[in-house]
Design a protein around this nucleic acid. Structure first.
Lengths: 299, 299
DNA sequence: CACTTACCATAGATTAAATCTATAGACAAA
DNA sequence: TTTGTCTATAGATTTAATCTATGGTAAGTG
């Protein structure tokens, strides 16, 4: 098996016939025929059924192709990172839960290091994808939280995937409410206090949906539940309906404007926010710099 | 970049010097030197620092090697599956939460298809790993549940990873208690009923730890909590301490003996148990057969 | 029904690449 | 200084990849 052979079968499958695939690959048709045949013989599989009208993937071939694509996906990471395909940019990927400090650190990093030389990706996503991205080196660093309920599970998962977790800071859950809410006078809030009011959460397109549903306490029952699509709408409803939303309390308050206030929530829970790194590779210079900025922002 | 080159650098890194790596790889030392150099030139990286006393990985090289290993891990799946390395066995992998019906179906499949020809792996693990295993084709099928709290998150994750979910059946949560427990007279139980009694959960080695912590309701507070290592111990404690344990109610009651009984738990929750498959590949014959057995067992 | 067209397969030549042997060079230890 | 242990280089050799040319098959066409 060679990478070429894998690329070849993927192209052939896409094109539906060997002749045009050969053109696309800038090789002669017999070469392609031979390459495929060799692969099929090596593993004793029939990937394509040939006819004079073209080729067709066999069921076995479909399966094989799945594996082939997995390999090629992984090689693309090397190509992208080291061959600098796509305008020679160096790339930097972060996967994170939705924390404004992570975004701020990102912006800071961008400023520090000659913007147009790099391609930055900030992936705000959920825990699973963060771990997956970092484990498979699609992102070089991930940011997530542990609390007493998820800690064991997450730590084991990290260990299984050969990832390290380094804590940055601990946060207590906060509640965002409108400044005129009846709850605004209280110093802190309990779950009991919140019961009469509607709970708000939001989805923002397909990207950071479930941001709140990954938050702690999301499984606690609640009588009035509102899900909105737009962040601004959410804040309007916080004010208009005396609603509330629970979050980590690490979201930059400036972003929310003067009408929204945060109150600590009195629950027996904490969030330990930190970053994860793959133990199999050394963090890049960029990554180390990003960690420095994270630390300075969260100190 | 070729797969050979990647294998070479991994071996060289392991051996610490090119000469002995070449021996291990059954090639001449200059060939290996040339192959590495070519790779380094292609991506303009310095993977090893050479000296007359051997080689040493550079920081850059460590990083590169991480990517290389990811590619090779993926190719190994092809080798294992198609080249039948390791005694020519066909392999079949299932990743599942801890459900006895999944194990039973597994055993059934084994019986049906000439036992000594296959190598079966039953990976009882947690949701993340199930999804990850199937997404990266380490397992051809995964079994997990959805409930109203995890459904959105899981479905989105499945979609992101190009996996399909097919429901098998719905289950209500059950409580396992000793047959002499004061709760044994009741037809069904509420969370309120359970409050005075100790909650039990177990870890079984490193394998299906967190099985219960992935169960629904695991985050509901509880005053008396016991974690044991052994399943038999858990059942002893269920009886001796009038403890309880919450589970999906799909665990085969026969396994538990006559002293343990299951009672439905009255909560507004359900579990939809089903299987996940990668959409990128066609399920193998074995997989389809396994699904058939699953269906017949859970009908 | 010939004739063309659009495929894939095969054969043998050709080119490119991988690998080999032999040897040089650098450095540390004896 | 000599020996042993590395990696690097040069040039020959083998292996593998790719090429051109051609054959065969089935479907479409006048």
């Amino acid at each position: 098996m060679t990478l070429k052979q894998l690329q070849y079968i993927v192209t052939v499958a896409e094109e539906g016939n060997i002749t045009s695939a050969a053109k696309k690959l800038f090789i002669a048709q017999p070469s392609l025929t031979a390459a495929i045949r060799e692969l099929e013989n090596e593993y004793n599989v029939t990937i394509f059924s040939r006819s004079n009208k073209g080729i067709k993937l066999t069921p076995e071939g479909e399966e094989f192709l799945g594996y082939a694509r997995q390999v090629l996906d992984q090689t693309e990471l090397i190509e992208e990172r080291y061959a600098g395909k796509g305008s020679g940019k160096l790339k930097f990927f972060v996967s994170s839960q939705h924390y404004s400090f992570a975004v701020e650190a990102f912006v800071e990093l961008l400023k520090e290091s000659g913007a147009d030389k790099y391609e930055f990706h900030m992936r705000e996503t959920q825990t699973f994808n963060i771990i997956d991205d970092v484990a498979h080196l699609r992102s070089e660093i991930g940011i997530l939280y542990l609390n007493k309920f998820n800690e064991e599970v997450i730590r084991k998962t990290l260990k299984d995937n050969n990832l390290s977790f380094t804590p940055l800071f601990k946060a207590k859950p906060h509640v965002f409410i409108g400044k005129n809410s009846p709850l605004a006078k209280k110093k802190y809030l309990t779950l009991e206090d919140l019961k009469p009011y509607p709970r708000l959460s939001y989805e923002q397109g397909s990207h950071n949906s479930f941001y709140f549903s990954e938050e702690i306490l999301s499984t606690v029952d609640c009588d009035k539940e509102l899900v909105v699509l737009d962040r601004a709408t959410l804040f309007n409803m916080l004010i208009g309906l005396n609603g509330y939303t629970i979050c980590s309390g690490v979201i930059n308050e400036e972003l929310n404007g003067p009408n929204i206030i945060a109150k600590p929530l009195k629950v027996d829970d904490y969030m330990e926010i930190g970053y994860i790194l793959p133990m199999s590779i050394r963090p890049s210079h960029m990554t180390l710099e990003y960690i420095d900025i994270l630390k300075s922002l969260t100190a």
